[in-house]
């Protein structure tokens, strides 16, 4: 059986976990078994609806103290639950909380783990998982040698796949150790889609010349319903907040569409965005290295091209 660990924040299931269910369900089909999900804590969603993503059953440890994420507590409870349920493969989303919990769970289950998987495992000869390495510059295929296998799956690499069906929900009695971490402050940027979950991202670099010029980029993002990002020099100069910095040392993202405006495309920046499905580069320098990594390029002045693109998108949406 393939078990998917469901991550939640503020009692809402993370989108990355829905993708993990779709991945787990496809893997289960490949292995001739079924997929079940594990929810720690209480969430607002109707858990039977997880059947839509491919889970036939949902196990829930319905203890409210699990609604506040604590890596140590979550990994202890998850490992106990998995031992009780019994699973051959455990799938996590490769998001902030998944990365913090999955390796600890692997230790507790004596399981081999591959983090950051980019595709379904090959299971015709052993169990071989392909993951991105060298910050997206290569792939490695790793064979997991243990009886139980743990995988974390890269966000936006598989996609959410809807199916028919509802899941049965079963409550699981697992004792929950007390957390010894006290959350003293939470600082959330309200109303924005987290960059790692965004499917459309518009990003700006030094070519925009100053924070006062960000209006054209924000207009473009608004016309698309996209999130905004920036390059390292931009966040270092405080033109944009640090949480918008994508790149090797910032956030690594894999949206469906990444539009880079006035970003030359240094190797460190590419390491953060090279898993994007489609890359559009707008730059006035035809020699900018980013064009080599792009699917579509516009050589031109951002101050003319970007408003024209925004107008074209608005026109296209109005027509549709």
């Amino acid at each position: 059986m393939v078990l998917i660990y469901i991550d939640q924040a503020d009692q809402e299931i993370k989108k990355a976990s829905l993708e993990a269910i779709s991945y787990g369900a496809a893997l289960a089909k490949q292995l001739g078994t079924h997929a079940e999900a594990l929810v720690l804590g209480t969430v607002k969603e109707d858990l039977s609806s997880l059947g839509k993503y491919g889970a036939s059953k949902v196990h829930q440890v319905a203890n409210d103290s699990l609604n506040h994420f604590d890596a140590r507590v979550n990994s202890i409870v998850a490992a106990e639950a998995i031992k009780t349920i019994g699973a051959d493969v455990v799938v996590f989303a490769h998001n902030t909380n998944g990365k913090a919990v999955a390796p600890a769970v692997a230790v507790k289950l004596n399981a081999g783990i591959v983090t950051g998987a980019s595709a379904l495992p090959k299971t015709d000869n052993g169990f071989v998982v392909t993951k991105t390495v060298f910050s997206g510059k290569a792939f490695a295929s790793l064979k997991i040698e243990t009886a139980i296998k743990v995988i974390t799956i890269n966000q936006n690499s598989f996609g959410i796949q809807l199916t028919e069906g509802t899941a049965s929900v079963e409550s699981l009695a697992i004792s929950v150790p007390a957390s010894t971490i006290k959350i003293t402050a939470v600082n959330k940027v309200e109303g924005e889609i987290p960059l790692t979950e965004a499917s459309l991202v518009v990003s700006g670099g030094r070519g925009l010349k100053g924070p006062e010029n960000w209006g054209i980029l924000l207009d473009l993002a608004k016309s698309l319903g996209a999130s905004t990002a920036c390059s390292r020099p931009v966040s270092d100069a405080d033109w944009r907040p640090h949480h918008e910095h994508v790149g090797q040392t910032g956030i690594q993202i894999a949206p469906n569409l990444y539009i880079a405006i006035g970003i030359s495309g240094a190797i460190q920046h590419l390491a953060g965005v090279n898993r994007s499905k489609t890359i559009v580069v707008i730059n006035k320098d035809p020699e900018a290295p980013f064009f080599k990594a792009a699917d579509y390029g516009v050589v031109g002045d951002a101050f003319e091209v970007v408003p024209a693109l925004t107008a074209a998108i608005i026109k296209s949406k109005a027509g549709a």
């Binding site: 902030t96 959350i183 600082n187 790692t196």
Partner: peptide, 12 residues
């Protein structure tokens, strides 16, 4: 620590 869409501070 970073959380999706923000930060939280913890004491331990």
């Amino acid at each position: 620590r970073e959380i999706d869409g923000g930060e939280e501070t913890a004491e331990t």
